[in-house]
């Protein structure tokens, strides 16, 4: 049996809102040691999502035996919208479940709401992602990256990222013109999450589809910072830290014709 209680429903709500537009169906793997893990790839096979909600993200977590919950995220999202952000949220499943029980508890009122979501058998291949060495890594405020991804998409369907040891440059060239934003590393002692950190083994220039970057920044509400790891001619990793765990996106770059 699985029983996981979140202190606040908002965490799972934000996670599902962050991924449901990229992947519709996915398997949630549940185990006592790893908590909940998900790997899912979008239909175009360009964007991969790797989610880990450690048991530390829950107020209470027990999973007697390993379980796979096949979920339609659109349906789960509808059910999660029934609860308030501050409610306790408990998810419960039997050992061979055909449904997931979702329970919201209002902390002040004596109100308990229960929903049952039908589960599905989902066939999905799992990709092996080795721990890669990256050419460079940037950590920056998540909202700042989101603004760049959204603003630059209005100019071009591609966004080029150029990293050198003393700057990161976002470049967009489109029909109406072009634009670039340059950020320099700095440390904000009072608000560390406002800092921009660049770690560099070698400079990198990569181009990504603006559409996919805009899917990724839907995770902005989850974390104050985002870490972007880039390697020449390889998928980029965008990581949002959870209180205990992470949401990672792997995005394949674009190549010159």
């Amino acid at each position: 049996m699985l029983e996981g209680k979140f202190e606040e429903a908002s965490l799972l709500k934000k996670v599902i809102e962050s991924i449901k537009d990229s992947v519709k169906l996915c398997n949630f793997n549940c185990s006592q040691s790893k908590g909940i893990t998900v790997q899912a790839i979008d239909d175009s096979r360009v964007l991969l999502i790797a989610l880990k909600i450690d048991s530390g993200s829950f107020q209470e977590f027990r999973c007697d035996r390993d379980l796979v919950l096949g979920l339609d995220l659109e349906s789960l999202s509808k059910i999660l919208k029934q609860g308030n952000n501050e409610d306790y949220l408990t998810i419960i499943a039997e050992d061979s479940p055909d449904s997931l029980l979702v329970v919201f508890e209002d902390k002040k009122k004596d109100r308990i709401s229960e929903f049952s979501l039908k589960l599905m058998d989902i066939d999905s291949d799992v990709l092996t992602i080795d721990d890669m060495e990256h050419d460079c890594s940037i950590t920056m405020p998540a909202y700042e990256f989101a603004k760049i991804a959204r603003d630059m998409k209005t100019l071009s369907e591609s966004l080029q990222i150029i990293i050198t040891k003393d700057s990161v440059k976002f470049n967009a060239e489109g029909q109406i013109g072009s634009g670039s934003i340059i950020l320099k590393p700095h440390t904000d002692m009072e608000k560390p999450d406002e800092s921009i950190k660049i770690e560099l083994n070698q400079p990198v220039v990569l181009t990504f589809g603006a559409k996919y970057l805009n899917d990724i920044v839907k995770a902005t509400a989850l974390s104050s910072t985002v870490t972007i790891k880039l390697t020449d001619k390889a998928p980029a990793l965008f990581e949002y830290r959870l209180p205990s765990g992470y949401l990672r996106y792997y995005l394949a770059p674009k190549f010159d014709d």
């Binding site: 360009v46 060239e173 998928p235 394949a252 674009k254």
Partner: peptide, 14 residues
């Protein structure tokens, strides 16, 4: 610009 790459070229299916 450019041709969109796919993840299959980089990650193995297990």
């Amino acid at each position: 610009g450019g041709v969109q790459g796919r993840l299959d070229g980089f990650f193995k299916v297990s």
